[in-house]
C-alpha cells in the first residue's frame, strides 16, 4: 500500500537539537489519525515535520510519495497545516487573507469565497480586519484558508482550541468532509473525547517517539484480530 505518511526511524531537528527521536508511523490515504501525548511530547513537531517545515536528518520520511529529505518544497504545496499560530496578516481583512493564500495555492477566487462561506465568515465578518477578530474568529479564518487551499494532507494542531461549540462542530464536519473527499488527516489534540470520536485510530507520542500505534503495533493488532477471527470461525 502507498502510504500518505511513511516514517521509519525518522529524526528531525528543531534548531540544532533533535526533536523527533526515531519515529515510525504509517498513515493510509483517507485515514484520520489522532496524535496524542503529554505537553512537549513532540506532537506539534511531528506535524511540522510531516509538513516539511523541519529538516529530517536521519531515517526514512516520505509524505505524499515525496522524500522529505530531498523534496520538501513539493510536499509543502500539497499539505495544509493549522498550527497554534493562524498564519494570518493582521492588517488584512478576512477576505484578503483567504484570497491571498488561496491564490498562492493556485485556487480560484470562487474557491476562496466558498471557503469563507463554509467557515461561517460570510456577511459582516467578510471585510473585517483580522486584527479586530476574536481568537475563535481568527481560528475560523485559518480554517477557511485551509479549506480554500484544498490540501491532500491536513495537519491539524489543536484544531478545536479557542473555538465555541459551533466552531468545534464545524471543525469535526470539515475533517470528516475532507476525509470523505479523499484527504488524509493527522490531528493532535488534548480534547481526547472529541478527537477520539473523530479519528479512525490514534497513536501516542512521548519523548519524540511513537510509544503506541506504531506500524509494528498496528501489524500485531491486525494479526491478533485475524487470529481471533480464525479461531472463532473454526470453533
Amino acid at each position: 500500500m502507498e502510504f500518505v505518511v511513511h516514517l521509519r526511524s525518522a529524526v528531525s531537528l528543531l534548531g540544532r537539537f533533535p526533536a523527533l527521536a526515531g519515529v515510525d508511523l504509517d498513515v493510509a490515504p483517507g485515514e484520520i489519525v489522532l496524535v496524542q501525548g503529554p505537553n512537549g511530547a513532540g506532537k506539534s513537531t511531528l506535524l511540522r515535520t510531516c509538513a516539511g517545515l523541519l529538516p529530517v536528518v536521519a531515517g526514512t520520511a516520505e509524505v505524499l510519495g515525496h522524500d522529505l529529505v530531498v523534496d520538501r518544497r513539493t510536499v509543502r504545496r500539497r499539505v495544509g497545516l493549522l498550527g497554534h499560530a493562524t498564519g494570518l496578516y493582521d492588517d488584512l481583512t478576512v477576505a484578503d487573507n483567504v484570497h491571498f493564500w488561496a491564490r498562492a495555492a493556485g485556487a480560484a477566487p470562487a474557491d476562496a469565497e466558498a471557503a469563507i462561506d463554509r467557515a461561517g465568515l460570510a456577511g459582516r465578518l467578510h471585510d473585517v480586519q483580522v486584527a479586530r477578530l476574536s481568537a475563535g474568529q481568527r481560528r475560523r479564518t485559518a480554517l477557511a484558508v485551509l479549506l480554500a487551499r484544498r490540501p491532500e494532507l491536513w495537519l491539524l494542531d489543536e484544531p478545536h482550541a479557542g473555538l465555541d461549540v459551533d466552531g468545534r462542530e464545524l471543525v469535526d464536519e470539515l475533517v470528516k468532509g475532507a476525509a470523505a473527499a479523499g484527504a488524509t488527516v493527522l490531528l493532535a489534540s488534548h480534547d481526547l473525547d472529541r478527537a477520539t470520536a473523530l479519528a479512525h485510530r490514534s497513536v501516542t507520542i512521548s519523548g519524540g517517539t511513537i510509544v503506541s500505534g506504531a506500524p509494528a503495533d498496528v501489524a500485531a493488532t491486525t494479526a491478533a484480530t485475524a487470529a481471533a477471527a480464525e479461531v472463532a470461525h473454526v470453533s
Binding site: 511540522r48 509543502r76 497545516l81 496578516y89
Partner: peptide
Amino acid sequence: AESADGTRDQLRLSG
C-alpha cells in the same frame, strides 16, 4: 508582517 502569527511558515507552505 512576515514574522507575526506564523505567516512565515504559511509562506513556506504556500508553494
